[in-house]
């Protein structure tokens, strides 16, 4: 067996992260109190907009080929959408969470 020559495909590393994160998500989400399920939805919405990193890459491409212009266009619109979600999602979650109060005694 030639161990040294074998290289693990990066896909496998990504898959490991993914599978472990699914399990982490499973346990973390079950521990969320049902009273906060609506903020849970709005905050998951906000964090899934981390897709913004892809939008930033697309909008920032150098103008090297005919496809670059298209990529910039798509990236620009994606960036707007992602930012609506990031700002809207986090702020509306903050607004909701600020309303949850304990009994004042």
């Amino acid at each position: 067996m030639e161990h040294a020559a074998q290289v693990v495909d990066p896909f496998i590393f990504r898959l490991s992260i993914f599978v472990l994160a699914v399990f982490v998500g499973y346990f973390v989400v079950w521990s969320v109190t049902p009273a906060l399920h609506t903020p849970l939805m709005s905050v998951t919405n906000a964090i899934s907009s981390v897709i913004v990193v892809g939008a930033l890459l697309a909008v920032g491409v150098g103008m090297v080929s005919s496809g670059s212009g298209w990529a910039r266009g798509f990236g620009f619109v994606a960036l707007i959408f992602a930012c609506v979600n990031i700002f809207g999602g986090f702020l509306v979650t903050q607004r909701m969470l600020a309303m949850y109060k304990k009994k004042s005694k």
């Binding site: 939008a55 697309a58 670059s68 298209w70 990529a71 959408f81 992602a82 979600n85």
Partner: peptide, 27 residues
């Protein structure tokens, strides 16, 4: 509102994929 935000995430995913498709070197 949450439904509308979901639609934006979905569309952003499509657009980012399109961007990656047309400028793969940047990704």
């Amino acid at each position: 509102l949450v439904a509308a935000f979901h639609s934006l995430v979905g569309m952003a995913a499509v657009l980012v994929a399109a961007g990656a498709f047309y400028a793969p070197e940047a990704f």
